[in-house]
Amino acid sequence: MSGAPVGLPAVVVVTGTDTDVGKTLTTAALAAALQAEGAAVAVYKPVQTGVVAAEAGDVGEVRRLAGTVACSDGVRLVLPMAPVAAAVREGAALPALVDHVAAIRGLAVRHDHVLVEGSGGLLVELDGEGNTLADLAAEFPDAAVVVVCRSGLGTLNHTMLTLEALAVRGIAAAGLVVGSWPREPSMVELDNAEFLAQLTVPLLGRLPAGASRLNGAQFRAAAPGWLGIRGGLAQR
């Protein structure tokens, strides 16, 4: 992780270099670390796929691990597919970009930080109009994006592509998080971590593999030590 703790803005967007890289775990760790500083944190997931209404889903997992009360999603879809494809097959309507913006702004009024967890990667469409998580992030000029990446082979290309996509859109990158770091990393993983740590975008931390198996109290106690971040408490 970087030397000095990295300050996070009021709106933090969490994306991944791919699906299943640890975005939800990272969101929970960010929430736990910020709450340990006394910040009021809300979590919003614009689109949750692959879950039925009665299931906890990603926001429920954040609530379990981080103890964050204000966790919500914009829409839930059953099929484990990209949002637009799932909505078409289910005959469901997806919220418009303005709906997500309004929800996040409403949460920001009452909280120091709003963590917005995307579905899949940065350029996965959220609605039927071609708007992506990048477009949502761009609606908040002071927001920054945390990019969650893998530890193993292929992660350097995917990470650099995601950072380049952010840069060309003028969206700030708050830092990188390795979503699952093995107890015994390979030479490839060690070299990858060294490369990521030398980028101008800070490496905020590496979450230990198996962290999701911790109970809430254990997770909240450990999370602040995994991430080199600090909050920017707003005056409410």
Results as ranks from 00 to 15, higher is better:
residue 92 A to W: 04
residue 110 R to W: 04
residue 235 Q to S: 13
residue 216 G to F: 07
residue 194 E to H: 13
residue 213 R to T: 15
residue 195 F to N: 00
residue 25 L to T: 14
residue 190 L to K: 14
residue 162 T to V: 12
residue 32 A to N: 06
residue 69 V to W: 09
residue 4 A to E: 15
residue 170 G to C: 11
residue 229 I to H: 02
residue 222 A to E: 14
residue 111 H to Q: 13
residue 167 A to E: 15
residue 197 A to W: 01
residue 35 Q to K: 12
residue 59 V to R: 04
residue 64 R to W: 10
residue 70 A to T: 09
residue 231 G to V: 06
residue 130 G to M: 10
residue 226 W to Y: 10
residue 172 A to C: 04
residue 155 T to Q: 01
residue 70 A to M: 05
residue 85 A to P: 00
residue 43 V to H: 09
residue 193 A to T: 13
residue 95 P to Y: 10
residue 148 V to N: 01
residue 195 F to M: 14
residue 5 P to M: 06
residue 219 F to A: 07
residue 60 G to V: 12
residue 5 P to E: 07
residue 120 G to W: 07
residue 29 A to H: 00
residue 136 L to D: 05
residue 124 V to S: 07
residue 30 L to I: 13
residue 173 A to Q: 08
residue 58 D to N: 05
residue 188 V to T: 15
residue 111 H to V: 13
residue 9 P to F: 05
residue 216 G to A: 11
residue 94 L to D: 03
residue 88 V to H: 12
residue 60 G to Q: 08
residue 149 C to D: 01
residue 42 A to C: 11
residue 174 A to G: 12
residue 121 G to Q: 06
residue 144 A to H: 05
residue 77 L to T: 06
residue 6 V to W: 02
residue 105 R to F: 00
residue 40 A to N: 05
residue 8 L to K: 01
residue 158 H to F: 06
residue 23 K to V: 09
residue 170 G to W: 07
residue 103 A to D: 05
residue 31 A to F: 06
residue 114 V to S: 04
residue 155 T to K: 03
residue 144 A to I: 14
residue 2 S to K: 13
residue 64 R to M: 13
residue 51 V to W: 01
residue 9 P to C: 11
residue 227 L to E: 01
residue 42 A to W: 08
residue 218 Q to T: 14
residue 189 E to V: 08
residue 102 A to S: 14
residue 144 A to V: 11
residue 155 T to W: 01
residue 225 G to Q: 09
residue 124 V to R: 02
residue 206 R to T: 15
residue 177 V to H: 02
residue 193 A to W: 00
residue 198 Q to W: 03
residue 197 A to S: 15
residue 76 R to C: 11
residue 3 G to R: 14
residue 41 V to A: 04
residue 107 L to I: 05
residue 62 V to N: 07
residue 7 G to Y: 02
residue 98 V to M: 04
residue 76 R to K: 13
residue 229 I to N: 01
residue 16 G to I: 08
residue 153 L to Y: 04
residue 9 P to E: 11
residue 91 G to C: 09
residue 191 D to C: 11
residue 202 P to I: 10
residue 126 L to Q: 04
residue 208 P to S: 12
residue 37 E to R: 04
residue 229 I to M: 06
residue 187 M to K: 07
residue 180 S to M: 10
residue 226 W to P: 07
residue 91 G to W: 07
residue 89 R to E: 15
residue 207 L to A: 04
residue 201 V to H: 02
residue 135 D to M: 08
residue 123 L to I: 12
residue 161 L to W: 02
residue 193 A to G: 03
residue 14 V to F: 00
residue 69 V to K: 14
residue 156 L to K: 02
residue 75 V to T: 13
residue 194 E to N: 12
residue 222 A to V: 08
residue 97 L to S: 03
residue 136 L to K: 05
residue 49 T to K: 00
